[in-house]
């Protein structure tokens, strides 16, 4: 049984190929590649991945234009029906702008683009995307972003924390994110947005293979391994 994933490419996406490679390496099946102007998603998808990059040149706000593209209307409908959606970096920004995840990603508090491998704490290992990690485990995954400073109001933060929806947290302050949040889940648990790039950490040769288990979690959960 094949794993049916789709990777969405927007104008300015630049991690779409890495994302497709990571999914294929772990699942054994090459994902579909869809373009922002496509309006229909095929039925029966096991995963929709929104990759990193600078969609639409980060015009207006990071992720703002992509979130209003035609394909995203279909992604929102699919997510509402329970299709797993993973947004990495710019993909996380798109998910917040599209309203699939709460909060917003603002300019890093230090104003600098941050590009380095960071330590993350796996806060929730019960999710679709994190089941292959141990709770509280520290993993090493690269970040590369200018706008990763997670902001949400106090009530939203309380809700995220109390509902176990903070999936990943920076082990040390990184970019000014409130509560050091690096990745969050939607209420139903089928949408994960995260600033770090798991697709850049799938082989020891890349410096870390800690990101690989995120894909293994999703593939394992969805094809009933």
């Amino acid at each position: 049984m094949g794993f049916r994933a789709a990777v969405i490419t927007f104008p300015g996406s630049n991690c779409d190929r890495d994302m497709a490679v990571a999914i294929e390496k772990v699942s054994g099946t090459a994902p579909l590649r869809l373009w922002h102007g496509d309006s229909e998603l095929p039925d029966g998808l096991d995963l929709i991945a929104l990759p990193g990059g600078f969609s639409y040149g980060d015009y207006l706000r990071s992720g703002a234009m992509a979130a209003r593209s035609r394909i995203m209307q279909s992604v929102v409908r699919a997510a509402d029906k329970g299709v797993p959606v993973l947004g990495v970096c710019n993909g996380f920004q798109v998910l917040t702008e599209a309203g699939l995840l709460p909060g917003a990603l603002m300019r890093n508090a230090g104003q600098n683009f941050i590009c380095r491998t960071v330590s993350l704490t796996v806060e929730n290992n019960q999710s679709l995307f994190t089941g292959a990690y141990d709770a509280g485990e520290i993993v090493r995954i690269p970040v590369a972003h200018h706008d990763g400073n997670y902001f949400a109001d106090d009530d939203t933060l309380d809700r995220l924390e109390n509902e176990g929806r903070v999936a990943l947290r920076y082990a040390e302050p990184c970019n000014g994110s409130r509560n050091d949040i690096a990745g969050i889940l939607n209420r139903a648990g089928n949408v994960l947005g995260m600033m770090p790039h798991p697709e850049r950490a799938i082989e020891p040769e890349l410096g870390s293979s800690d990101g690989r288990r995120l894909f293994e979690s999703a593939v394992g959960a969805l094809i009933g391994a």
């Binding site: 207006l60 209003r68 702008e97 709460p102 917003a104 902001f151 109001d153």
Partner: peptide
């Protein structure tokens, strides 16, 4: 509301 401003921030 729909595009020009992000009402979260």
């Amino acid at each position: 509301r729909q595009l020009l401003a992000n009402l979260v921030i």
